[in-house]
Amino acid sequence: MNPTGFLTPFFAFFGRLGRRFLMFLQAMGDATVLSANALSHLLRRPWQGRHFVMQLHALGVDSLVIIIITGAFTGMVLALQGYYTLAKFGSESLLGAGVALSIIRELGPVLGAFMVIGRAGSSITAEIGIMRVTEQLDALQMMAVNPKARIILPRIVAATIALPLLVAIFDVIGIAAGYLVGVELLGVNPGAYVAEMMAKITAHDLNGGWVKAIVFGFMIGVICTFMGYRSEPTTEGVARATTQAVVIASVGVLMVDYILTSFFL
């Protein structure tokens, strides 16, 4: 018997790992090519303005309710938890600063991105996947309409613009809800709450939040359109692509969030 036979499972493991990594790199490359190709139509005629507005509606307006609800509850729970912690040090006056900083720097962009991925990103992937299955993408091609310019581009641009706007609304709602819980419910001094909040938040914090929101929006647009465009042209393929798009976009957002935070600290 082969003396190194016991190593075979390890070789197999590394082989699988390597193959998956290469597939991942391949997919990254393909996604880059697809989105670059789509974005190259940004300034080219025909102008896709109307389709961009439709996508801004699908991504932004339709996500508004869920963003307001999650924003409000995030601010409220942050105020409760923050109060519980800060009260131990007798620093309840910092509650406003704590809530606002957490929301602006971190929770607004990340939770906002998660909501948009779940609400709109998955439906983008499913929609494009179904267009692939039912040959609608080919039909566009046959009617001399470039599906990358018509379908992919408006969605990427709309996601990049809609997410920062949604995050801004999320932030304001969250801060307001945190104020209500902190001041009205827990009895923190309103003057101290607002003054500390205004004193501690700098333009730097806000900028970090905007950059995150823009980057996450772009990522969601690219990942969700790519997964739909490349989904296997079967019903199972579309279902799988949709799940994968949600998982990859969510994990990707968290990983990029860490990288961006380390740059902007």
């Binding site: 920062p164 801004a168 609304i169 932030d171 205004m198 333009a203 914090d205 806000l206």
Partner: peptide
Amino acid sequence: LGLLSAGWMAIKLGQ
């Protein structure tokens, strides 16, 4: 609404 929220934060909080 989005721009209003962003503007409010920028002026009120971020100076």
